[in-house]
Design a protein around this nucleic acid. Sequence first.
DNA 1: CGCATCGTTGATTGAGGTCAAGGCTTGTGG
DNA 2: CCACAAGCCTTGACCTCAATCAACGATGCG
Lengths: 261, 261
Amino acid sequence: MSENSGSTSTNIFVAKLSSYIDLSIEEHQVIEELTQNSMAFDEGQDIIFESEKNSSAYLLQSGWAIRYKIVPDGGRQIISYLLPGDIFGFRESLFELSDDSVQALTPVIVHCIPAENIAEICDSHTNLSLAFTWARAREQAILTEHIVRLGRRNAYERLGHLLLELLHRLQLVEKAGNSDYFLPLTQEVLADTLGLSIVHVNRTLRKLRNDLMIELDPKTRRLRILDVDALSEATGYDQSFLDQNEKPSRSPQDAIGFEEK
Amino acid sequence: MSENSGSTSTNIFVAKLSSYIDLSIEEHQVIEELTQNSMAFDEGQDIIFESEKNSSAYLLQSGWAIRYKIVPDGGRQIISYLLPGDIFGFRESLFELSDDSVQALTPVIVHCIPAENIAEICDSHTNLSLAFTWARAREQAILTEHIVRLGRRNAYERLGHLLLELLHRLQLVEKAGNSDYFLPLTQEVLADTLGLSIVHVNRTLRKLRNDLMIELDPKTRRLRILDVDALSEATGYDQSFLDQNEKPSRSPQDAIGFEEK
DNA sequence: CGCATCGTTGATTGAGGTCAAGGCTTGTGG
DNA sequence: CCACAAGCCTTGACCTCAATCAACGATGCG
C-alpha cells in the first residue's frame, strides 16, 4: 500500500450520495476533505485482514474488492463485492465481531476515515450519518439477495443473477454501459462466490454463452449481457432490491438541490 | 394482532443492551417507555409483509420469528431468525429497499417504535443510537455466517452449525440451558433455511441423532446437543462471530454500572 | 524456455433432489 | 365416539445436478 495525496476530480461519493440524499454545501466539503488522502492497493493485497484489529471506515474510490471468509477446510466463501463508490469496514469500526477479510481484486484506491472521526462526523452532519445508515441498509439488502441466490437457485440462475446484480450496481456509479462492463473475476472467484466448483462455473458460463445470454471475452474481460430481460426472467432477477425510490432528508432547509442524472 | 398494554417485568432489552453498552438511567427509562405498548401475533401471522410500506422498528419481546423471501418459482428462503431481544425492521425504516417479509413462528410479542420517533431517540440518546448500530452490525455478522453456511458447507454441517448458532444466541438472552433449548421449527422451516429439501433434512437429522450429536424429541420440541465441542468441530462452528468483547460507551460519565450475568 | 495461472473438456462419482407412500398426531364435525 | 382430513415425520427407490479427478491448451512472465 502506498500513500498518495489524491487529486480527485469529480468525487464519486458526492455523486453517489447525492442521488439518494440531498447534501448541504458544507457536507459536500466534508466529503471532499475526507477523500483528500488516499491509499492504493495492488491486486491480491489485503485491505483488511481477518485478525487485524481495524476500526476505520473506508470509501472505495476505484477498483474492485471482495469481502470473504476462510472456512476450516481451507475453502473460501466470498461474502460480497465492493465496487467503486461503496463504503465498507464501518461495521467493524464500532465493535469487534467480524473476522472476515477484504482483499483487492484489481488495483484499488481507498479513502480511510479513522474510527475517531466517524462518530464526530455523524453527530455534526445528520445527512452524512444518514448516508452511512443508507449504505448499511443497502449492503444488507445485497447480502439478503445473496442468501436467496445460494439457498434457492441452481448454478445457471446463480451465475446469471450475479452478473445482473453487478451490471446494475456498476450502472448506478456509471461504470457500466447499457448492457456490458469490465468483469475482473476469474472463474475461481465466481466459484467461491456462488458456492460452486470452478469446473461447474466454466460449464455454466458456456451454457449462458450457448443460450446467447452473454458474451464474455476472456482476453479483454468484457462482459456483455445480450438480453437483460430474458436473463432476468431466466434467473429470477428483480433489481428492485437495489433501487432507492426516496430521497429522505432530515434537514431540508439547508439542503441544496442536486440534479438526478 | 391485538393491542395489549404490557406489564413487562424485567425488560429483556435493558438486560441485553446493558451487556454490550453502559446505559444511563435516563436511557433505561426511555427503553421502558418504548416497551409499554406491545402487539401480539399468532403463529403463522405476518408481522411485516413484503409489499407493505412499513417504516417502524420492532423489538421482539418473546417468541420466534423469521425473515424470509419468496422466489419466483414459489420456493421460500428464510434469511434469518428473530429471537427474543432482537431488534428488526429498522432497516426498512429509513429506506425502501426491502421486500422481504417477517412472520411469527410461535406466538410473539413485539414492541413497535414508530419511524418518526427513531431519529429523535437516536439524536438525543447517543447510547441508544449505538445500540441500534450494534444490532445492525450483529445482524450482519449473522447474515455473513449464513452465507458461508450455504455456500461452503454440506447438509450435515449446515444443520449442526445452525443448531449451534441458535443455542448460542438463545443462551445470550437466557432462553436456553447449557446445551438444550426449545426448537419450534418444523423440518420444512429448516429446509427453507438451509437450502435443502425436507426429505434430506429429515435424513440429516437422523444422522446427527445416530452420531449421538443431538437428541430431539418431536413431541416436546426440546433439542439437546449432546457434545457441543464435538459438533462445533464437526461443523466448523466458531461462536466468536456472536461475541462482544468490548463495552464501547461514548458517554461514560453518565453511564451507570450494570452487572454482567 | 520453463513454470504458473487460468480456461477448457471428458469421465466418473456422489450428495442431495424428487417422487411416492405410509404412519402418527391433532383437530373437527357428524 | 368415531371418521376424516390436515400436518408433520419417516422411509424407500430412483434420478440429476454438481463435485471430483484428470488431463491438456493457452497465455504470460521471469
